[in-house]
Design a protein around this nucleic acid. Structure first.
Lengths: 208, 208
DNA sequence: CCTCCTTCTTTCTAATGGAAAGATAACAGG
DNA sequence: CCTGTTATCTTTCCATTAGAAAGAAGGAGG
């Protein structure tokens, strides 16, 4: 009775799925404790392994965090494909509006992960998965934002077209970052009645 | 001959101006090595004191970094009062345009400091100097951006007005952050001839 | 001159990332 | 089945870090 036919998922010397387990542990810690909690020892402990067990899979801490950031960009791409929140009326350019709300909504729902995704100092951007996930997300964003200008996904770009892409991306990115770093509450607290995130985000977007 | 009448500025037990000297040292290290280099020991060594000498002046490392961030916000306020770069033609709302270029120009000229100013995790936002400097900078920014809407500096705010303030601030902040984290070069490299920062920033701003 | 209090140094501790070496298991070929 | 090879994981060790604690140095006011 001590030899289960289904292998016990824990306790084995070779974990079998440690890479994913470490990513899951890091994801959970990121939600609970923020980036501060993403220590090699804490992640490994949560996955039930020693603090150097991540070495063969990720190289070093920045490798692990980069893969986690890649997961974030993959989720961001999905979020930008979601429909608008219910309390936001659609207006002109509904595609761009949907992408913008998806971008900012993802950031507000996953603030720590979003910050990590842009923490250049702790990431190793040469990681293939991170490069791919980043490219995919920004492709989705700029194809929607640039549809108005007929901007191609590659090749030469006229300055005004590049400008409109940068402006659109900067707008949603800046709103997200300012909200996450808690720089907007002094402004939003002066608005009565207190608007839902979807509503004030839409107010900011449609003002531009 | 070993007792100079003019006190040697270094070597004294009581430094006399250690607080400013530590800020200067931290500022220099930030420029040279980035935020990574802002270790208590490195800063203290550069100022010629032991690694705990900052304690009486700043409490802990976050106290020191917060004062440095406050210096950053003070400089940002000055930058937003500067005239437009020479290669940028003025158009409608020149006041807002000037503020925007000042904001982004400051970020591009002091990327490490700008990132530090918004690194919520390493700052102690209860520091009076940081609170004051932040408030001043954002007052300057929003008074110019809100002039069009006649937004008061305090008191209740209608949602569309708050939205336009958030949109304007988010736009410049996002452009600055994306540029600093090196997410715009894939786009800008597709523009020929390579535009100066002032030109592409203006292209992004006037697209919105 | 004497005492108090701030400033700064020395010393110590706990925590961290990572290097190095070794143990363990999976897997291949004979 | 048996043995050598390789990737995975553990143990141990080290340098570096922030900060606490205690004490020395020196200025300020009585």
């Amino acid at each position: 009775m001590s030899q289960p036919s289904a292998p016990a998922p824990a306790r084995r010397y070779h974990h079998g799925n440690l890479k994913q387990a470490l990513l899951d542990a890091a994801d959970a810690i990121l939600r609970e404790d923020g980036i501060q909690g993403l220590k090699l020892r804490a992640i490994a402990k949560r996955a039930g392994v020693s603090h150097t067990a991540a070495d063969p899979h990720f190289g070093d801490l920045s490798g692990l965090l980069s893969e986690l950031a890649a997961v974030g960009f993959e989720r961001l791409s999905e979020a930008m494909a979601q429909p608008l929140p219910a309390d936001v009326p659609a207006h002109a350019n509904p595609s761009g509006q949907r992408i913008a709300h998806g971008y900012i909504g993802f950031a507000l729902a996953n603030p720590q992960l979003f910050v990590l995704m842009f923490r250049r100092d702790v990431l190793d951007r040469s990681r293939p998965r991170l490069q791919a996930a980043t490219a995919t997300a920004f492709q989705a964003l700029s194809s929607a934002a640039g549809a108005l200008d007929g901007a191609p996904n590659t090749g030469p770009l006229a300055l005004p077209v590049a400008g409109s892409l940068i402006g659109a991306w900067g707008l949603v990115h800046g709103i997200a970052m300012l909200a996450i770093t808690d720089h907007l509450s002094p402004l939003l607290d002066r608005v009565a009645p207190s608007p839902s995130p979807g509503r004030w985000v839409d107010a900011a977007l449609s003002a531009m």
